[in-house]
Design a protein around this nucleic acid. Structure first.
Length: 158
DNA sequence: GCCAACGTTGGC
DNA sequence: GCCAACGTTGGC
């Protein structure tokens, strides 16, 4: 099974790439996904060893800031049956979980932000979902050439 | 804070 | 199963 590539969004004031790096073992469980399409990608297609573009959304400078790696494949998101969690969903139970999460680990921080604006300007990145109008999926697949290019941009001087 | 785009809910 | 109402996302 070849390695796959993803883009995952998070608001940096909720959980930034640095927060991931500073977590125990630089690893976290990606809880709180409450969208079926995003869930299906995580549950059905994400495999250990897949790479993730870490994207900061809903902030002053939206864009990709680094790379993470999937270190644990999908398992039930226990926050969905925790009544105290803001992600609580009464329709999800331990016996019949509705929502799933994966674990990801910090891999690399870019030297610089690869901004959404810059990706929209880049002719060769136009098939990335994140640059397309109205695309709100918080977990989305990325083609390898696009992944490689974004990493190259992030690790270059400008 | 605005609002376009999109997903979900629920009445019928 | 349709679709209006509502909620959320996320760029700007």
């Amino acid at each position: 099974m070849p390695k796959k590539f993803w883009l995952m969004k998070c608001e940096p004031h909720v959980f930034s790439l640095k927060d991931l790096k500073d977590s125990p073992d630089s690893t976290t469980h990606w809880d709180g996904v409450r969208n079926y399409q995003a869930r299906n990608f995580m549950r059905d297609q994400m495999k250990t060893g897949d790479f993730v573009l870490y994207y900061h959304s809903n902030c002053d400078a939206p864009g990709v800031v680094g790379v993470a790696e999937v270190v644990k494949e999908a398992y039930p998101d226990h926050s969905s049956w925790d009544q105290k969690s803001k992600y609580f969903d009464p329709k999800s139970t331990p016996e019949n979980p509705r929502w799933f999460m994966v674990d990801i680990k910090w891999k690399q921080a870019f030297k610089r932000l690869v901004s959404l604006h810059e990706m929209k300007e880049a002719a060769e990145l136009q098939n990335m979902r994140v640059v397309q109008r109205g695309q709100r999926l918080s977990v989305q697949p990325v083609e390898k050439p696009d992944f490689d290019r974004v990493v190259k941009m992030g690790m270059s001087a400008n």
